[in-house]
Simulated assay, not measured.
Amino acid sequence: MKAKRLIFRLLLLIAVAACIEWFLYANKETQTGADVENVQTQQVAPTLAVKHSLEQDDLKLQLAVTNFSFSLENMGKENKHGEGHVHLYLDGKKVAKVFESTYVLKDIPSGKHEVMVELAHNNHESYGVSERFSVEVAP
């Protein structure tokens, strides 16, 4: 009878140890997944610097970006951090999507205009990174 109790207690102890080991392993996997998610959300934000010049009624843009790559092929697809395109606005209206570091907006009407250049995700949502400036096209 003592032998049966001893075996039962031993099996119970092994079962409890196995449950604890499984719990610790499952918790470690969850923490690892959470750590990966935290690293992804802490990725370095992209930056944008815009140089511009007017040649008659054409606006020439030079876009310097860091932690960002232009992607025409993934536009409208799943977002990837640091990938996308640029939205170009003239007087508050989106006039172009830009997929490279240089761009020329041709035939701007004469007068003073507000320009905004904004980094956008693949799904067109803003990164919250933009530059605004004014230009004046002579009549």
Rank of each mutant, 00 (worst) to 15 (best):
Q43T: 03
W22F: 06
Q40C: 01
E21C: 12
K77N: 14
V50C: 01
I20F: 13
Q42G: 10
Q43D: 08
L72R: 09
E21G: 13
G84F: 02
V65H: 05
L12C: 06
N38P: 03
Y25H: 14
L54D: 00
D57A: 13
R9Q: 08
K80E: 09
L61A: 04
E29R: 15
A34Q: 11
Q42K: 02
L48Y: 00
K4Q: 12
L61C: 02
M75N: 10
V36D: 07
L54W: 02
I7Q: 06
A64I: 11
V39Q: 12
Q43F: 02
R5Q: 15
N27Q: 13
K77G: 13
V65K: 03
V65Q: 08
A3K: 05
L6Y: 11
L48A: 06
T47D: 08
L13N: 05
I14F: 12
V16R: 01
M75A: 15
N79H: 07
Q43L: 14
F8Y: 13
L10G: 08
A17S: 01
E78L: 11
Q43V: 06
D57R: 07
K4P: 01
A3E: 09
T32L: 13
E37G: 13
F23T: 11
V65N: 09
F23G: 10
D57G: 09
Q56K: 08
A34I: 04
F70W: 08
Q62I: 05
E29M: 06
G33M: 10
L13E: 03
T41P: 06
Y25R: 14
A17H: 03
E78T: 12
I20E: 09
E73I: 11
V44G: 03
S71Q: 02
L6N: 13
G84K: 00
H52V: 02
G84Y: 00
N27R: 11
A17M: 04
A26S: 12
A49D: 14
A49W: 08
K4M: 08
L63K: 04
L54Y: 10
A3S: 05
G76K: 01
A34Y: 15
W22H: 05
Q42L: 12
C19V: 15
T32A: 12
D35F: 11
D35T: 04
N27L: 14
L10K: 09
G84T: 02
Q43M: 03
K80S: 13
R9V: 03
F8P: 07
N67T: 12
D58P: 01
G84E: 02
L13Y: 10
T47K: 15
T41Q: 13
G33E: 02
Q40V: 08
F70C: 04
R9Y: 09
V39S: 07
A17C: 04
V16S: 08
E73D: 09
A18Q: 02
I20P: 05
E78P: 04
F23N: 13
S53P: 01
Q62G: 12
K80M: 06
L59E: 00
K4S: 14
N79G: 06
F23W: 13
Q56A: 15
K80V: 03
T66P: 10
A15P: 05
A45P: 12
V39A: 12
L10S: 07
I7N: 00
N38H: 10
N79Y: 00
L12D: 07
V16P: 04
L59R: 10
R9A: 05
D58K: 00
Q31N: 12
Q62S: 10
L54Q: 06
